[in-house]
Simulated scan of single mutants.
Amino acid sequence: MSGLLVLDRRQTAAALRPDAVLDAVGRALVSIARDEVSAPPRIAALTPTGLLGAMPGYVPGLGLAAKLVTVTADPRHPGRGFHRGLVALFDEHDGRALALVDGESLTEVRTAAVATCSALALAVRPGLGRVAVVGAGAQARAQLALLATVLPEAEVTVAGRDPVRAGAAAALHPGARVAGVEEAVRGADVVFCCTGATAPVVRREWLAPGVHVSSVGGSRGPELDSGTIRDAVLFAEWTGAATAPPPAGAHELQDLAPGRPVALLGSVLDGGHPGRGGDTDALTVFKSTGHAALDVAAVRVACDVALERGWGVRVDL
């Protein structure tokens, strides 16, 4: 069929099958580590309330795509924000636009998938053990929904500033409970930090030996304190997480000591890096900044599933 396939928000979310997204995101991370991906650092136009970022990327075997994403503060709720946008998939051979999907739901699912990949690769306990999800917004809900699908037996605690919102988020995972941030983090084997924080919400003294922390928020500031970064074995999607300034790089990784290593998660998945290397007491931190290759992976899954199931509308564009 000819024309551009357009998926609305509901169709995009339904087409992002968790197992397929986890697999595709893992492939994209490995391609980043092998230096097979073409993706310039994210650029952004800044506004008084946020930014508009552009993220094009090409991943061999997955495709060519670009995301336009806005990150803005919510004027009605200080400390909260929005991530909105569009993702377009193109034919890598002749340049035709193939599909256009909702960027908000795609970003949520692929970010939850990469965080889960990091935990599965770096956590000490099989099945992740005791899990804390810090945050109660859209990204935290996406993380909980993914965990409910792939690890429904995990012992999950949700922590957020608003107990009502945290309770609503916790309802997405069977048996999840609600606690304060410090209590949730102190009792965890794995911490998923999914906030819009502008200042640290996780403290080093709360983290027990052997904890894995996956931090995917913090677009406007650090989620993790300097002590956590100081003591951790660090991982990221790409080297620019530490070498590029925000919004491309991570706030937490800007002032590392010269020569401080930041390993690529794809190298762990590919077997080229030992991860925690058998050190069950090491603190590991995966700091996600997002990467265009992950959007390529997720939009490929969404397009393939939609084509298989006959979803979406065609536009002559």
Rank of each mutant, 00 (worst) to 15 (best):
V313S: 12
A170N: 10
P78S: 14
A15T: 14
D189C: 10
A171L: 06
S105W: 02
H93L: 14
A169L: 03
A263V: 01
R80G: 01
G210A: 13
L16T: 02
V158F: 12
L172W: 07
V211F: 12
T239L: 11
A184F: 04
L147F: 11
P258T: 09
L172F: 09
A298N: 05
G103K: 09
C303M: 13
F192S: 09
A176M: 02
E153I: 13
E104K: 09
T72K: 02
V191C: 02
L253F: 12
P60S: 14
A292M: 05
G210Y: 02
R27S: 13
A159L: 08
A242L: 01
G271L: 04
A112Y: 00
A99N: 06
F192L: 14
L151V: 01
D162A: 10
L64I: 10
A263M: 09
Y58L: 13
T72N: 15
G167W: 01
G187S: 12
A170I: 06
G249N: 04
T70A: 15
R110Y: 04
L51W: 06
A65I: 01
F82M: 06
H273W: 08
G278H: 10
V59F: 04
V190K: 01
L68R: 05
P40V: 00
E104C: 12
V299Y: 08
H93P: 02
T284E: 07
G271N: 06
V313C: 08
P200D: 11
P246A: 05
I229D: 02
V191L: 09
R10V: 15
V25A: 14
F82Y: 14
T47N: 11
A179W: 03
T149Q: 05
A140V: 04
G85K: 02
D225P: 08
T107K: 04
R260C: 09
A250Y: 01
S31L: 05
G259Y: 02
T157M: 03
A244G: 08
P41K: 13
D231Y: 13
H251M: 05
R203D: 08
I229T: 09
R10A: 15
E36F: 07
V299D: 05
L307C: 08
Q11M: 14
E182T: 15
L224A: 13
V190D: 04
I43K: 03
G259I: 11
A302E: 07
G218F: 11
H212T: 15
E237C: 05
G26H: 14
R141N: 07
V216A: 03
V25S: 00
T49M: 03
A65P: 10
H212W: 13
T280I: 04
A119L: 11
G95A: 13
L4W: 10
R76C: 08
L4S: 08
G63M: 10
T116F: 12
